[in-house]
Simulated assay, not measured.
Amino acid sequence: MKKTIAILCTLLCANSLFSQQWTGNNTTTDPIYRGGPVSVGTTQSYDRFTLGKGNLRMVDGMIKFGYFTPPRGSFRDSYFTIQNYVNPSSPSNVDGLYIYPSHDGLSSIDDVPYESKAFFISSASKIGMGTNTLTCADCDSYRLFVKDGIKTEKLKVEIAANNGWADYVFAKDYKLMPLKELQSYIDDKGHLPEVPTTEEAIKNGIELKEMNILLLKKVEELTLYTLQQQSQIDKQQKYMDEQNKRMERLEKKIHK
């Protein structure tokens, strides 16, 4: 009997302690809440909810992360937000996920403000930085779309195959366009063969890798033209040297 009373007292005390911490109906479906902060995985409380270890999952909503600076004992004003974006033309579908710094939230029925396009992950697993326009002509295979430029110290572009480089220009069987034909082409078209026009470059942009390979090809063709001209110059110089020698011999005979 004493054990039973002790167990009941323990349960009542536990329930009393729980009721002091949390408010709400004691059911498995009704919400519970509390006025003070909650900490999980740590004894420190920097915000209303502090997660010390583990992962945080929130479904069908917006996630905002604030930052607390313990040395200063205060909150920083900045935070960033993770929020679903619903396309107004098809509100039943979520088109992607935004991650952006603190400012007014998005509205699923309004156009996305410029500042909200800091980082966008589309439902097609494409990434936009500064833009949520991730489709264009002939770019379905692209994954990263960046607006306003990229500043970097290094950029390495992979070459998929041996024939992806322009050294085939130096092959023995490569047919170099004669200079007269090249002159006619430039006079007619106003640009080098294979090089896009100004209008085409503005309309379609340029492929950085393909353009570098094309420029290398033109440099190698220019090298071949230069070598051809140098060979012709050498032949002419040799002919002139021989003619000068013949003139000298003739002059000597005349003097005799």
Rank of each mutant, 00 (worst) to 15 (best):
D111N: 11
L227Q: 13
G41V: 08
S74E: 14
S116H: 07
K189G: 01
M62R: 14
D60F: 10
V157G: 09
S107F: 04
A6L: 12
R246Y: 12
D234Q: 09
K252H: 15
G24R: 00
G96N: 00
N244K: 11
I7S: 08
L250N: 12
D104T: 07
G61L: 07
T135E: 15
D60Y: 12
Y98N: 00
A166P: 13
S122T: 13
T10K: 09
L17Q: 15
W22T: 00
N204M: 04
M58K: 08
L214D: 02
A171R: 11
T28Y: 06
E242R: 00
E115F: 09
Y239M: 10
R143D: 12
L222R: 12
F170Y: 12
E115G: 01
I127M: 07
F120H: 06
Q232W: 10
K154R: 10
V40K: 01
P71Y: 13
T133E: 15
T10Y: 07
D138Q: 14
A201R: 15
I206F: 03
V157W: 12
L250V: 06
P196R: 03
G52H: 11
G190D: 01
L192D: 11
L250K: 14
K156F: 08
K245G: 01
M240A: 13
F68M: 07
P193W: 04
G52C: 06
P31N: 03
E248R: 07
L155R: 06
C139I: 02
K172E: 15
T197K: 07
N93R: 11
S16N: 08
G54E: 09
M129P: 05
L134K: 10
M129N: 04
V112M: 00
E242W: 00
E153M: 06
N26A: 12
D187T: 04
D95W: 01
K64P: 04
D110V: 07
H191N: 05
N55E: 13
S89A: 14
G190S: 00
P88V: 02
E181C: 03
K218W: 15
G73F: 12
Y98M: 00
K180N: 05
F49K: 04
R76S: 13
D241F: 08
F145R: 05
N15H: 13
K189P: 01
R72V: 06
H191R: 14
Q44K: 13
H255R: 11
E248S: 09
N212D: 04
P193S: 03
Q183L: 05
F120T: 04
G66E: 13
G73L: 09
Q183D: 11
